[in-house]
Amino acid sequence: MSAQSQPLSAYVTLVSNDGYEFKILRDAACIAGTIKKALDPASGFREVAENRMELPTINGVVLEKVCEYLYYNQKNMESKDVPDLEIPPELCLELLIAADYLDV
């Protein structure tokens, strides 16, 4: 109840399975469909109250890249001919599975 009445914080925390925490803008985080659903105030999940989402399937290195992507996507939302984000080949497979899970 109290979570619903509080204004939404500007930043949310994403936690990787090896304990790294990433505080990123809520708007950017919500580009990922799964995060958006988890942090949707209407859902009443614990994530909403804590502004914190634990991602037990994603490790810190991959999550860092995900966060980089979210900001990159947010920055380029309205621009044309966006240059592609460099993806290190060795991260690619894990990142792809993470992207599928997060729906980005």
């Binding site: 990159y72 966006v82 993806i87 080949p89 980005v104």
Partner: peptide
């Protein structure tokens, strides 16, 4: 489209 970025999945798949 060329508005906005490709999805992360798309980027990964292309790189792969």
């Amino acid at each position: 489209t060329f508005r906005g970025a490709k999805t992360l999945q798309q980027l990964c798949i292309n790189t792969l």
